[in-house]
Design a binder for these strands. Sequence first.
DNA 1: GCTATTTTGTTTAGCGGCTGCACAAAGTCA
DNA 2: TGACTTTGTGCAGCCGCTAAACAAAATAGC
Lengths: 393, 393
Amino acid sequence: MAERGSGLLGAALTLIHTGRAPTRSALTAALGVTRATAGAVIADLRDLGLIQVGAGSRGGAQGRPSHRLVIDPEGPVALAGQVHPDGFAVALVGLGGQVVARTSWAAPVPDDPAHALAPVAGAAAELLRRSGRRCVGAACAVPSAVTEPEGAAVSPLYVGWPTGAKIRDTFAGLLADRQISVPSRVVNDVNAVALAEHRHGAGRNAEYLLVVSAEHRGVGGALVLHGALYTGSSGLSMEAGHVSVDPGGRPCPCGNRGCLNVETDAARFMAAAGRVPRPDSPVLDQATAILSAEHRSDPRVAEAVALLVQRLGLGLAGLINVVNPDRVLLGGLHKYLLQAAPGQLRETVALRSPWGRGAAVPIHPCALDHGGLIGAAELAWQPVLDNPGLLAR
Amino acid sequence: MAERGSGLLGAALTLIHTGRAPTRSALTAALGVTRATAGAVIADLRDLGLIQVGAGSRGGAQGRPSHRLVIDPEGPVALAGQVHPDGFAVALVGLGGQVVARTSWAAPVPDDPAHALAPVAGAAAELLRRSGRRCVGAACAVPSAVTEPEGAAVSPLYVGWPTGAKIRDTFAGLLADRQISVPSRVVNDVNAVALAEHRHGAGRNAEYLLVVSAEHRGVGGALVLHGALYTGSSGLSMEAGHVSVDPGGRPCPCGNRGCLNVETDAARFMAAAGRVPRPDSPVLDQATAILSAEHRSDPRVAEAVALLVQRLGLGLAGLINVVNPDRVLLGGLHKYLLQAAPGQLRETVALRSPWGRGAAVPIHPCALDHGGLIGAAELAWQPVLDNPGLLAR
DNA sequence: GCTATTTTGTTTAGCGGCTGCACAAAGTCA
DNA sequence: TGACTTTGTGCAGCCGCTAAACAAAATAGC
């Protein structure tokens, strides 16, 4: 098999992976190469066990139908884990963001990262063993900022891990103990969601994608630039949770007041709506339940929505003025806030934009069900997407 | 002459341009190619009239001395212009950021962009004619956000241009009238400063460079990522001037209150220090004069410094938490504020950072005298830096 | 001052990836 | 059924880069 140069092989696999090259001729056009070269590339990817070439079926157009490029259903998978304040999840994810197998369970997160990640590694190993498939890499989404390139947790506000814990090494070690020796990474959960949405969800084809999400607790932000996660110089970028939206607001664990974190998350919504969260289920679930149609008539709920949407709009406007995205996605509770009051949110953002509503950015809800897992898998797949030839060795 | 592929020629020229490859062997190492390939690349660049190969003189080290790579002193130049609220400047800039010729004059800026840019184009044409050198491109720095790719001014707060004016087309047309037909651009002034500082000033080798500057009026921000200006999806990124640092503060032309624009610029400093600006000289000059040593004993000046530094620190902290830069540069009035109270500024930033002072980002003053002009020239040079072969045609 | 060593520049042969072209294959349209 | 259109494949060839051998220019050691 010829070694392709200049990343052509990776570009081709990425196009197939993201669904932008469903047929052979589409790939040829997207790569900007001759049919002969595309043929060689496709042969390589097939030899690597990543894709299969199917029969071309097409109606209406002239000429010889182009063969379909399909992801090999027995091809390798990435191992994805997720830790959030209310529980755990693990999945095997193939090319194209296909979730091949998945399991999840609710449980408190131990204060020791090794104790917290051990069951994730265990469940992952079990899923992988049963699937019998090759593993290209592993990644775990966590509710904490993660430094690059060390892979250390920084001020995880909603789990009890110590700041500076090298959770990437911990995770890799736990997998190695189970005979899984693949490149392993740890990633902030909202970063993972953003990457997943960009590749397979509501963020497709956006070149400057801003994602803000109130997952289980707190608020996170992420930016995907030209298809790659923007992590900043040390992994600590897009700390959207600490954007100030109310100088006289509630204290945030970071030391300031009125951060997006404490002003627009599920706990704040419950308080604003006059509800006391029950301890037996995740706050996020309770908040989204209240946001559903049957409770909208409650004036306290309407007030809470108006308040949080106003705060969220302020925070979004600030981020938009810095990042100038071409699309904004909202996840977690923010997704439901957007759906409850889309007009008010867009209005608030436009009012705070120096350019007015003329330069309005489209704001959409996140589209994926398991964005954290799929996004973690994207990160695990990335080295292969950059250079598929890695699999040959 | 062989056409080099995959941007090798451009990478080589950029290394020489930024001073990272002063000798032939340094270039070979930096490019990661063989000496034979480097030889071919150097021959190409020399044939294009961009560089010359000098004799190698070096003391202390063993082995044959490597030839020096020097920028051709008769090589082509870029044409750089600058418009600011207090006047105009024009320069010819060669490779390496060398200002070959320069002229500037104070004058009010006409409300019609064509009238404002005409003398810039005229002075540029005159400089170019007298120099007798080839021109690779032109760019003009302006005190306004500029949309990409249209090149339109958006809400120029400090000159009277209409929003949406296509000043790039205007500028290109004025140059074409004077028989200068080269690619022409228009760029925000702080963006230009940032690019210049990254290539030739205090931002060298930074991968994530954040620049905030209070030039003549207002405040601007810019970001240089991996050597290229970050413009966002439509050129309107890094609107640092509209970061809110005092919700109850002064009204900003954008409609909000307490923006960095109105809380930390030269006019605000004068007011805080109890001075009334004289109309006969630029406010920035008056403010920096007051900031010099002999006025520091004035308690009102000290108060003004403390107030503005506190506001600036708040704004910087917000930007740093989003961008996570590896270096921050301050220009214009902010440069002098930093020099007047470096400890207080760094303290304020660190206090507002969720990671505390452990992850402190280095904050430095800008180093270049004519950053706006040099940065505009960088933009004009960019197509040639990306593909020097363009000059052959 | 001579030689040995080190590092640099140049020449040459050769490989590998990609293009361009010719031709075959597989569909639609009249 | 035949003309047309589009797609896949085989083959010759170019071009950029590498590898290796050789020549050149300095220092280091005797």
